[in-house]
Simulated assay, not measured.
Amino acid sequence: MKISYIFKKIKNMRYKEYVNHAKIVADKMNKSTLSILFDMAKCALLYGSGYMDYFEFEFYLLNGKERKTYLTGKYNNDIVKRYNRKEDWHLLEDKGEFNKLFKEYLGREFLDLRDASFKEFKEFIYNKEKIVCKPLDNCGGKGIEIIPIDKSIFKNEYNVLKLYNSIMKKEQFLLEEVIIQNKELSKLYSGSVNTLRVITFLDNTGTTRILNTILRIGNNGNVDNFSSGGMYTFVNESGIVYVPAIDEVGRIYYEHPKTHEKIVGFKVPDFDKVFSFVDKLSKRVPTIRYVGWDIVITENNICVIEGNEYPGVFQVKPSISGIKTGDLPKFKKYMDL
């Protein structure tokens, strides 16, 4: 483990959260907080795991041999640095640039206010009931707002200008048409668009490898992001959810708390079309080889929401699967780690 990585983690550590998570584990395992803090520090040193890796992947239930099989934040950082050329990150990071580059796969209209006039703004919103307003560099769904369009504002251009200035002030420079998801996904939760995060790697032969497929489901909000109150679960090669969902604080859901729809056993509609879709996406920017694609299934199509050059780490909790082997061996099949 590189000492520089350890020092960087220490510098950026949120100590209060670190200790709070240690207390949660200590109570669960009937151990002292100090012993858990020591074990968390040991795992950071030996396996490059952050406190959320330790907590989310339940390292406290694993022995050393099992812990070695888990993809941790350190490994994820290394993959991004090695396989995603930093000079090209902006093509995915900047949501406006991304939409222009992947326009044929969006399945929705959009407008980048950085290079659009007020007249173009007015024309864009005129025939829409709602618009999605996004910051160009949003992360975790932060700053996204869905704004209803009251047709009465067009009677007085001042009201349209007022809306325009409000959006510009909040730097929500990317406007998009609202996506209507497949009815089966709405049954799970209709308050947000429930997306798939498909993590791909473009290997040395130019072949797209799907490393993981995650179904993200909203809960009490209009976005499905984990960090914004949502939950996630895992989808197998047949498009079926095979484990319950979890949220950011570790709660487990066998059914959705709002709709009471069963999560385990849910079949993602049109899943057989997903691979060919992400295969096209992964080859559009071949210098960014490791990507988490957020896609949505509609009634008639598959649409890409965004691509993440820093995909994040998703692995099934040992306590809900009974499996104590992480994803690192799978990643090593295709990557030099």
Rank of each mutant, 00 (worst) to 15 (best):
G48V: 00
K103I: 09
R67I: 11
D294W: 00
F124I: 08
T233S: 12
D39W: 09
N220T: 03
F226L: 13
V268Y: 02
I305N: 02
F121T: 01
F124D: 04
G143L: 04
W293G: 01
V313M: 02
L34R: 09
Q172F: 00
I199E: 01
K267F: 09
E109F: 00
F314T: 02
K317I: 09
S49E: 05
L62V: 13
R209E: 13
G218K: 06
I167V: 12
C43K: 10
E145G: 00
N219M: 12
S4M: 06
P329M: 10
N159Q: 10
L136R: 12
N225L: 08
R14N: 14
K273Q: 13
K128I: 05
V178K: 13
N165Q: 13
P269V: 08
P269M: 12
Y70W: 07
Y254F: 15
Y126N: 08
L62S: 05
W89F: 15
Y83E: 06
P257I: 11
S32V: 05
Y232H: 14
Y15F: 14
Y60N: 08
I297E: 02
S228L: 10
G206T: 11
E299Q: 14
E299L: 08
S321W: 05
E129S: 14
T33Q: 14
G265K: 13
D27H: 14
F173R: 01
M52L: 13
V132Q: 05
E306W: 11
A22V: 03
G96F: 13
L71N: 07
I3Q: 13
I246K: 12
I146Q: 06
F98G: 07
K332E: 14
L163T: 08
R82T: 15
E145K: 12
R85W: 03
E248D: 07
S186F: 03
F234W: 12
K11H: 09
G312A: 11
Y189L: 10
F275G: 00
W293H: 05
G96I: 09
I146V: 15
V249D: 15
K28M: 11
V243K: 02
L281D: 03
N165V: 05
C139G: 04
D27R: 14
N76W: 04
M1T: 10
L175A: 00
S276N: 11
I153T: 04
C139I: 13
F57H: 14
K258P: 00
H90T: 10
K130H: 09
T208L: 01
Y254S: 12
L62D: 03
K42G: 01
E248R: 15
Y254T: 04
D39E: 15
